[in-house]
Design a protein around this nucleic acid. Structure first.
Lengths: 195, 195
DNA sequence: CCATCATTGCAACAAGTCGTTGCAATGGCA
DNA sequence: TGCCATTGCAACGACTTGTTGCAATGATGG
């Protein structure tokens, strides 16, 4: 019963957002009486928080690949999977809410902490391997990539596939300005790195 | 009366989103009877659509600066201003909605078309000037920058100031990998370009 | 100055939603 | 069997939503 309700809650959050979450509708969709839902989760926020916590618990960090470009691709693919799942879209809808709500802030904080930790880990490993990057750029690069994925998944509504991920990571690392004389070379060379 | 209601509608959309929009509350906040609102805009979506259309009508394209980096900074600053305004946040909340709604799709389409047009114009001008970029990358770069701004404004909730804009554009154009031997030089040199 | 017309305010309404409560039914466990 | 926690069910009061009829207002034109 708990699992079914939390699952339907995620589905409802994805569709309607936190403000539009209807406990009674969730209960009905889960084949349960609304009284049971109210008894276990007294408020709308408690129900939403439980559903989101459940969803986050199933997340797992991508494995190391041995190169910064590979690691970033893996991270961005994981972000893409998250952004195209019901759990992820529900989480994001709550995180992107108005701002006054306490739950929204907590979800935002959790997402940001996760991204920040991943960014530092991946860049620290790259620096240790002697790749020409600075840990100083870690957050900015990863936040930028996650932002690009947000734009693609939530605004453009296009698929976050391997091809797009590879291009985004390549642009983030090497830019798009042809540096003196080695025009397409950098892009082509970079494309052979990573998973 | 019309202006006051549409203004309050934007404020309400920013706070509560499309699903949480309460016509009666908007009317009260605008110092108007709800009947008058219902007569002019029969449905919730009609009211929201009118408010968003009003908001978009006041937008203006940033001026050309003479360099790609300067143009991109101007565009990103404009995006930042939009994302920190009531009108912008309201628009985005609607655009990022569940997906089934017709209004949401229309708003997404309008935002994307605007970004796409800006991207092509800026990159086409840069290519014409002989800067080492390809128009092919225009959309990807601008969408990536807009996405980064989304992440910063809506998830991190940090200010989109000149410093951050300059860094984001520099990274987008030149990347973060120190290309053979000119480690910090590329960043420092790039910083002197543009507005 | 008056007649006309559109706009707005107001009060009441049916229908529906929200969260609570009291009580009965169910089912696992000793 | 007796006990306990969990769930279903029906009813409730309070509130919200969108509609309607009617009166007040105010601008325009003769």
């Amino acid at each position: 019963m708990v699992a079914a309700v939390l699952d339907e809650t995620l589905r409802a959050l994805e569709r309607e957002g936190l403000a539009g979450l209807k406990v009674e509708a969730v209960a009905a969709a889960a084949g349960v009486n609304k009284t049971s839902v109210y008894r276990r989760w007294p408020t709308r926020n408690a129900l939403a928080a439980a559903a989101i916590a459940e969803a986050q618990a199933h997340l797992t960090a991508p494995p190391e690949t041995g190169t910064l470009e590979g690691d970033l691709r893996a991270v961005l693919r994981a972000v893409g999977d998250f952004l195209t799942s019901t759990a992820g879209r529900a989480t994001l809808r709550v995180a992107l809410g108005g701002g006054a709500d306490e739950l929204e802030g907590a979800v935002r904080g959790a997402l940001e902490a996760r991204a920040k930790a991943g960014a530092r880990a991946v860049f620290a490993a790259a620096v240790a391997r002697g790749e020409g990057v600075r840990v100083r750029d870690a957050e900015a690069v990863v936040f930028g990539l996650v932002g690009a994925a947000l734009h693609r998944a939530l605004l453009e509504r296009r698929a976050i596939d391997a091809r797009w991920v590879a291009g985004a990571v390549r642009r983030a690392l090497y830019g798009v300005v042809a540096s003196r004389g080695e025009a397409a070379g950098a892009a082509g060379g970079a494309r052979s790195v990573g998973s």
